[in-house]
Simulated assay, not measured.
Amino acid sequence: MSEIAGELARVREAFDKPTLRLLDRKWAPFVLAVFKSAFSRDRRSVQADRLHSQVDAYLADLRSVGSEVPGKNGRALCVQWMNDLWLYRETGENGEEQYSLSSHALEALLLVDSLSRDRALISESRLTTIVDSVRHRATQANPDREARILRLDQEIAERTAERDRLQDGGEIVTATDEQMHEGYANLVDLITQLPSDFKRVEESVAAMHRQIVSDFRGEERPIGEVLDEYLAKTDALMSATAEGRAFEGAFTLLRDDALLQDVKNDLESILDHPFATRLTTAERRTFLGTVGLIRKGIDDVLTQRNGLTTT
């Protein structure tokens, strides 16, 4: 296969995924507007009948101002979006059916949001993030003991010199408003990707749940033998998929309460800088809610995993 033919095949495969299928449809602006209006960071799930009624209300509202909208009613549209893998329907803790956005819908919303707001441009903050990450990974990748010690010695020397300078009364240089705003935009770019990342892990676990139950029902071997095999599968659940392995790696950090408290304190310190007067109340609240977003994402994944273990 030629290079261009290979690239065309990869692009076609990407366009066949639910995220790009959503963006490529005639009614994409309407669907995404509904998702943005009905769901939020604080409202991740909506009771099924309520969402059907909300969509009906959105349709009527848009028709009244002359906007072209789909011909189906709210319930039919929600079912269609669920079949298109943009909505996920499950039974909530109260026993009622509820909808939540799939990772594909969250990714599409993330892309639209990034195109409709001022994105973090190439800046000192963004380059520093890249350089620090490259340095950290290079240190981890290098098996040479002496090289690691040398790099640590360099970092210790730099930090010691800065500490001594400050202790001797050296000038404290604070970041300018523009530098802080660039850094804030860079952080927001990273933070807004978290919901879809967590959702992909949830969906990975849920898909495995359905597959295990389906396979279990189709088994004809002795029940003890089957149970042993499926219990082994659930034990290796998080290492069986790329999403699960990534989550397990991050979970070591995410479950560190002291680290998350430090993150919360650092977020507050960032907003204490004068640049933050340019932010809206909603932007400040969302930024400060980052730790809560992380905790909720962890809880949702663990709830999905515990459901499979219970089954």
Rank of each mutant, 00 (worst) to 15 (best):
V291D: 08
V205K: 10
D177G: 09
L231K: 05
V201A: 08
A60S: 06
L8F: 13
A60N: 02
Q80W: 03
E283H: 05
V226D: 05
A250V: 00
F251H: 14
R278C: 01
E219S: 14
D168N: 15
L23K: 10
E203N: 08
L77Y: 07
A236Q: 11
E3Q: 10
L302Q: 11
T160Q: 07
G74L: 01
A33C: 02
G74I: 01
G244S: 08
V34K: 01
N265C: 04
E229V: 01
R200Q: 13
A157E: 08
R12D: 14
A76E: 15
I270Q: 05
Q98W: 03
L87F: 08
S37F: 07
A60D: 12
K36C: 10
L85K: 12
G289A: 15
L51I: 05
L190F: 10
V201C: 03
V69H: 10
K296N: 14
D164P: 04
I4F: 05
G169R: 01
S53K: 06
V173K: 07
L87Y: 04
V226E: 00
R25A: 15
E248G: 14
T176P: 05
G6R: 14
R305G: 08
R305S: 12
R50W: 02
D56H: 10
F287C: 02
S214D: 10
V301L: 01
L109Q: 09
K264D: 14
E243L: 04
V226R: 03
S103F: 08
T128H: 03
T252I: 10
E146D: 12
Q193G: 05
R41N: 08
S239W: 05
L110Y: 09
P29N: 02
L166G: 00
V226S: 06
Q211W: 00
Q304F: 01
L267P: 08
E93V: 09
